[in-house]
Amino acid sequence: MYITRSTLLLLLFGYLLFLLSVDWVSQPEGAWYRPFIIGFLVIAVAAFCHREQNADDL
């Protein structure tokens, strides 16, 4: 499988972001719906990434 450098960078960045978000969700004084905010953000990013799916039909 061919993995580009940008993909690896994205994975690293994603992992760091994941750790940060877990910290933010677990803060004792934080609201109970924080995981859902993150969920909505992730879905929004995914929708943006998938908006222009290439036309390759393999």
């Binding site: 992730v42 879905i43 995914a46 929708a47 998938h50």
Partner: peptide, 10 residues
């Protein structure tokens, strides 16, 4: 579905 189904589950 890649993003709409996760939204449904959310």
């Amino acid at each position: 579905a890649s993003w709409a189904l996760p939204l449904y589950f959310l």
